[in-house]
Design a binder for these strands. Structure first.
Length: 817
DNA sequence: GACTGAACTATACC
DNA sequence: ACGGGTATAGTTCAGTC
């Protein structure tokens, strides 16, 4: 039979010692299909450079006889071929060694520790990735499948008999198909429980939200009020879990979506199913979710892609987001303009009818938010899967370095390259201990309020350096060669080949594709194209970090150090050139330069830009970031030098851009942040400090009169490690400990909120004055004056010669008097 | 007990 | 374990007098 098919979920199984991929997806009529396929399994043995033909023949004969006896199967070498390949850009001869089972390749490799074989590679990709590379079948890309319809046949020991799909096909031929669009079936879910610890308390209710579908399943019932339509009552928790499974099966989603569901909802469901002695048989073959043993839990369901949106948001969006936390509430506000429903948690036994009704709504709304977030992010999720060529389950969980690596591995074929291996544990520890290399250049500004500021910045600065100078593991030379680029890295020299390597070639393609899509987007908007452009942008940006990351296959700190060395050299040259053209550079950080326009016209500035660009090497390019009417730089708190990474700008439309100031830091209280923001605004708009100073005096007065609302003085700080590992017990650790004592969950990543209160006795340390938001108390006047609002504006007013400290002290004495 | 610099910690910038 | 280094700034800690 023949069908058009889109693969969504990827997994594999063994039958008679061989590996088979099972792909679950849809056909063009929306029917749910499972396609079973296989591919040759092999690894590479790279031969020594000087090996003789005769020796190769002997080696092949020896390798052909290798057999590995395992507990439940025997794997043997089935065939050996010799190929001309490349490894790290070097031409090599390599044996392609075919074997029975992918998981046994490691054992085969152990037997290949033979003279004449230099390296063994290509057996640590995972069978699914190996399959995708070999058969060139991409996740979420339509294909034409020809094969045998398995209809409860005995093939594969009757494995398809238990698959809850419309058709199961054993593939004979798979070819690519034209794109016909795909609308995924999405189901979001969320549970509410009596305890925060996994499995500790009962699951009170679970909500489901899909297309024209909403449901809350609960064993807790309203006593007197009528139940809403979307609520289904069940007898107890055990029935709740069974009903949940039933509803998921009935809805038949491609994607089951949660928020922090890898870490909470799914493991909680599993734990409670275990406790109730029932099976959480949610997989399409009746299997239970499988949880990885890694540092962080991940829950995988056969046939349904379980997506934890929190993880994807962390890697794909967080660096560009305004939200100060990644809570469902904040993220929903930013992406959907909607927030969670208000609800104060109480134990289910203490819920009255009104509370329970709210709880139903709250629970359903959370699922609705997750559903809509998925819809919003679907173009990015889809394009990430297609660009990285990895299953959606993985790309939604991997970090950017893993994504860079996926892209590399899936494109090596075009370069005839054998993949490098993953670093082993010892290598990783060694790499982690390496000395840091010197990074970017930051210009020390002179504090002041400047008029007419121009900003230039480089487009994809570091990636463009890597490409232009060919900086990578495969192009790093051992010593000086004739056709090499010599790079002085803080007094030490490195040489890189001028012949382009696959890393910089691929990165060049990534940058070019990004530029091309961006150009096309200007002509016509398209959410999917935008998502693809974004995926390439993120890949390019992560490529520099990748080479310096200890877990990378293509780890190359020399390339990273060379990249930053070149970046420092070039930006300093540009600064000199701009200064020599009768402009004055006032600031620079990594890839951006700010300078005074000096009464010149915008056209003259653009000509300057053009000239600078004509002198830049390779694909490097400088861009005009913008013209600004005013810019403010301040000094550091400690000394009288200009502070780096702290400035504020205003453009001709009155739009203000603030960098680094306390205003943009979440670990300062709102009072200080809003005061500072207002002061910066007034100064930039007015061009002087007068109105700002008046405003500051008002705030001091209000604070002293205790007219400030409590929520404005709350300080929020993140817990970054287990509480007992803190060497220095700072206020936020005390706050966290207090929360823990009150039975609230505090884990790594938790944000704790507290304020500094007045104390009866005189206490020396700030941490002794910490109180949680719901603890009664007066805010500590001295602390908020001297440690919050004064530091927030002191350096700003200092630019104008105003001594704010005297302002606070003077007033204080007066009020005391 | 006051003072001081180093260490620790969180968060921003690019 | 799940990109990198540069930088500011607060609070505690440990040493001195």
């Amino acid at each position: 039979m023949k069908t058009t098919f889109i693969p969504i979920d990827f997994s594999y199984f063994d039958f008679e010692g061989k590996n088979f991929v099972k792909m679950v997806g849809r056909d063009n009529k929306g029917k749910r299909i499972c396609v079973i396929d296989s591919c040759p399994v092999f690894l590479w043995a790279i031969l020594s450079e000087n090996i003789k033909t005769k020796e190769v023949r002997g080696l092949i004969e020896k390798v052909q006889k290798i057999e590995v006896k395992g507990k439940d199967r025997t794997t043997r070498v089935e065939n050996v071929e010799i190929h001309d390949k490349k490894f790290l850009g070097r031409e090599v001869q390599a044996l392609k060694i075919f074997a029975t089972n992918y998981k046994d390749l490691h054992d085969i490799a152990d037997q290949l520790n033979l003279p004449g074989i230099e390296k063994r590679r290509g057996y640590d990709l995972g069978f699914v990735s190996h399959y995708i590379i070999e058969k060139e079948i991409l996740p979420l890309k339509w294909v034409e499948v020809e094969g045998e319809l398995l209809n409860n046949s005995l093939d594969f020991g009757g494995i398809d008999g238990v698959f809850e799909v419309d058709e199961c096909i054993k593939a004979e031929k798979i070819t690519s198909s034209k794109e016909i669009g795909f609308e995924p079936r999405i189901l979001a879910y969320d549970i509410e429980t009596d305890e925060f610890q996994i499995g500790e308390g009962e699951i009170v209710m679970v909500s489901l939200y899909g297309k024209n579908f909403k449901k809350v399943i609960s064993w807790k019932k309203l006593a007197n009020k009528e139940k809403p339509d979307y609520v289904d009552y069940v007898k107890d928790e055990s029935e709740l879990i069974e009903k949940f499974i039933e509803e998921v099966k009935k809805y038949s989603p491609d994607f089951l979506v949660g928020y922090f569901s890898d870490g909470f909802d799914l493991p909680y469901l599993k734990a409670r199913a275990d406790k109730n002695k029932i099976k959480l048989s949610i997989g399409l073959d009746g299997s239970q979710p499988r949880f990885s043993r890694g540092r962080e839990l991940t829950g995988e369901i056969f046939g349904i892609v379980h997506v934890d949106l929190l993880k994807f948001i962390k890697t794909a969006y967080s660096q560009y987001m305004q939200s100060e936390s990644l809570s469902l509430n904040e993220v929903s506000k930013e992406f959907l303009g909607d927030s969670k429903k208000e609800f104060e948690f109480v134990h289910s036994s203490k819920l009255d009818d009104k509370g329970l009704l709210n709880f139903f709504e709250y629970n359903l709304h959370d699922s609705s938010l997750a559903y809509r977030l998925f819809e919003k992010m679907w173009p990015d999720i889809l394009e990430f899967s297609i660009v990285m060529q990895e299953p959606t389950f993985d790309v939604t969980r991997n970090g950017m370095s893993k994504n860079v690596e996926s892209y590399l591995l899936h494109n090596l074929k075009r370069f005839n390259e054998i993949p490098e291996k993953r670093p082993v544990h010892e290598e990783i520890s060694e790499r982690m201990e390496r000395e840091k290399y010197e990074g970017a250049f930051v210009f020390e500004p002179t504090p002041g309020l400047y008029e007419d500021v121009v900003f230039f910045d480089f487009t994809s600065y570091w990636p463009s350096i890597i490409v232009t100078f060919n900086l990578s593991k495969s192009t790093l030379l051992e010593g000086k060669e004739k056709d090499a680029t010599e790079i002085d890295v803080s007094g030490k020299n490195f040489w890189f080949s001028k012949k382009p390597g696959f890393f910089s070639e691929m990165l060049k393609e990534i940058i070019e594709k990004r530029t091309q899509y961006k150009k096309e987007l200007k002509q016509k908007e398209d959410v999917f194209k935008k998502a693809r452009s974004n995926a390439f942008k993120l890949l390019a940006n992560a490529s520099y970090g990748y080479q310096g990351f200890f877990g990378a296959r293509y780890y190359c700190p020399e390339a990273s150090a060379a990249t930053t060395a070149i970046s420092r050299k070039i930006i300093k040259e540009i600064i000199d050139k701009i200064n020599s053209q009768d402009y004055k550079v006032i600031y620079s950080d990594t890839d951006s330069i700010a300078f005074l326009k000096n009464k010149k016209t915008e056209k003259q500035v653009e000509e300057l830009l053009e000239k600078l660009n004509s002198e830049l090497p390779g694909i490097m390019k400088l861009e005009l970031e913008g013209f600004f009417e005013r810019g403010l730089w301040v000094s550091t708190r400690a000394g009288n030098v200009g502070a780096k990474k702290k400035y504020a700008l205003i453009d001709s439309k009155g739009k203000i851009k603030i960098r680094g100031f306390e205003t943009v830091r979440r670990d300062w209280c709102d009072l200080a942040r809003e005061l500072q923001s207002k002061v910066i605004n007034l100064i930039l708009k007015e061009g002087n400090e007068k109105k700002a100073l008046e405003y500051f005096k008002e705030v001091i007065k209000k604070l002293k009169n205790r007219e400030i609302k409590k929520e404005e003085i709350m300080i929020t700080t993140q817990i970054k490690k287990p509480l007992n590992e803190y060497k220095s017990i700072s206020p936020h650790v005390i706050a966290a400990q207090k929360m823990k004592d009150a039975g609230l969950p505090v884990t790594i990543g938790s944000l704790v909120e507290f304020y500094i209160a007045e104390t009866r006795e005189k206490k020396k340390l700030i941490r002794e004055k910490v109180k949680l938001p719901d603890e009664s108390g007066e805010y500590n006047l001295e602390y908020y004056l001297n440690n919050q609002i004064l530091p927030a504006v002191e350096n700003i007013f200092e630019v104008f010669g105003v001594k704010t400290k005297e302002l606070i002290d003077g007033k204080k004495q007066m009020t005391l008097f």
